[in-house]
Computed example of a mutant assay.
Amino acid sequence: MDCDEFIARVRERGEYRSTDEAQKITEDVLEVLGQRIDAGQAEDLASRMPDPLGRALTGPGRRQPEEFGIEEFYRRVADRTGARPRTAQWDAGAVLTTVADSVTGGELDRFVSRLPAGYAVLFGRADPAG
């Protein structure tokens, strides 16, 4: 899937008003995800993403991964997007289910299994802890 198709899917799923809004939300969600995962995971996932979206995971400001749960993930997305946490949850789901569409099942399952409880549902997977 190319970048335009990826953003079009996010726009449709998130019911955003414009392509620019969908693009910004996508970059914000991926940047927060990039804060949570280690460099190897970020590089691997970025290699499966259309350019330039993968760079949001591996950007120049990347530091050591931080450990935080799903509620903190939503809070960080909300801070970046200026939305409420419930809207941030919607935004994250729109982006990450689209990520799931661009990564093969086994690869995605391995990636998601390394995240804490609660993240799987954002990728359209059953939460093994729930």
Rank of each mutant, 00 (worst) to 15 (best):
S102E: 14
A39R: 15
P60D: 11
Y74N: 01
L115Y: 12
G61N: 07
G61V: 07
Q35D: 15
Q23K: 01
D38Y: 12
R76G: 01
G105V: 08
G69L: 01
I70M: 04
E71Q: 11
R55K: 05
A117P: 08
W90T: 06
A117K: 14
T26C: 02
G14A: 08
R86I: 14
P85A: 06
G106V: 05
G93R: 09
P60L: 05
R84M: 14
Q41P: 10
P50V: 00
E21W: 03
G106L: 05
A88H: 03
L122W: 12
V99Q: 13
R17G: 00
R63K: 13
Y74P: 00
F68E: 07
V103P: 08
V32W: 13
V112G: 09
E27Q: 05
T19S: 09
E15Y: 10
R114V: 00
D109K: 12
G105E: 15
G54I: 03
L53V: 02
D101V: 00
R55N: 02
V121A: 09
D44H: 05
Q41A: 12
S102N: 14
L96I: 10
V77A: 09
E71K: 11
L33Y: 15
G34Y: 14
L57T: 00
R36G: 11
L115S: 10
T104M: 08
T19G: 08
I25N: 02
I70R: 05
P85F: 07
E27F: 02
V103R: 14
E71G: 06
R86T: 15
R84L: 14
I70L: 06
R86K: 15
A83V: 04
G54M: 06
D79N: 13
I37S: 15
E15T: 08
P85W: 10
R36P: 09
R75P: 01
L33C: 13
R55W: 06
E71W: 06
L108H: 13
R114C: 00
L33A: 10
A39S: 14
V95D: 05
R48I: 01
Y74T: 04
Q89W: 13
G82T: 09
Q41M: 11
A94Q: 01
S113T: 14
R17H: 01
D38W: 12
A94Y: 01
V32T: 12
G59T: 01
R36K: 15
P52E: 06
D101R: 07
G124H: 03
R62C: 04
I70P: 00
A83D: 08
F68I: 05
T104W: 14
